[in-house]
Design a protein around this nucleic acid. Sequence first.
DNA 1: GTGCTTGCAAATTCTTTGCAACTTT
DNA 2: AAAGTTGCAAAGAATTTGCAAGCAC
Lengths: 156, 156
Amino acid sequence: MILKIIINKMNQENITKKLRNWEQTLTTTGSRLTAPRKAILEVIAHASQPLTPIEVFDLAREKVPNLGLVTVYRTLDKLTDLGLVSRVHGHNDCQTVFRAASSHQHLLICTNCGTSVYFDGLDAEERFDQIGRTHGYQVDGHWLQLYGLCADCRTE
Amino acid sequence: MILKIIINKMNQENITKKLRNWEQTLTTTGSRLTAPRKAILEVIAHASQPLTPIEVFDLAREKVPNLGLVTVYRTLDKLTDLGLVSRVHGHNDCQTVFRAASSHQHLLICTNCGTSVYFDGLDAEERFDQIGRTHGYQVDGHWLQLYGLCADCRTE
DNA sequence: GTGCTTGCAAATTCTTTGCAACTTT
DNA sequence: AAAGTTGCAAAGAATTTGCAAGCAC
């Protein structure tokens, strides 16, 4: 499998800050900060796109060579439970992970390279509630993702 | 596994019409109308919620007892290719199928019983394009699903 | 030291493929 | 009769579980 170079557009400072937050969340919830976990956290924090478990595995293995795939699965479960990462369902892979959104944010995903960014400011909650009401539903959640070519892929 | 009674809120006439359309699409594209396929089509046409391959299998088997699960997978692939059914990614099952939307429609899914309806009239395309532009993306697709309790589940 | 984690191997679950027999048209 | 389809069995892929050894705190 080809893994493209992964460079997050967040600056290094923000990534470091996020990593510290994640590590703190782990320790304060009674979990332990091990080398495998640190490697996995770093991979996800630096990722500019949702990653499959195997991709996380391959990338994290560069730092922890004897890492087991099972550990990746278990760590991803834990991070998801803690709300640090989100499962992203794409059209191809439906089990990828990406750093979790801040709040009311949604993903904008490049259909060519996968590079993703969160956006907010849609402010459609009220509209969603209204739509639900007309069908007898009480809307309490939504799931929105936009797809399209990013600037880099368009100029290629 | 417990399969709840599945009653589509479309009236019988509409379901029959849709079934005829589907069957016609199959025959006109060179595919054949076999007993297994008819059973599968009926199950999906009558479903009020997205179904997993196994659920389709179990329900269709009531009509074609010696149906093989493989046939379900292959038929679902074909129906998806023809655009008759859509893959629906839920929070739990991400490989379920549901009759395809007419156009610019999105799903409203009950988080308790799974009963789903399509809605339209959101008219957010322009807003989506705009959001994409501010991030350098050229938006060419979106994926939206609303979640909430349906009227029946709320009164329970 | 205690209790959470890890990696290995094995078990499950889900989906796809090969193929001879069988339908549909 | 020709061509698409089916079901079985087997193969592959993806994910989970059991467990003894290893670490973090």
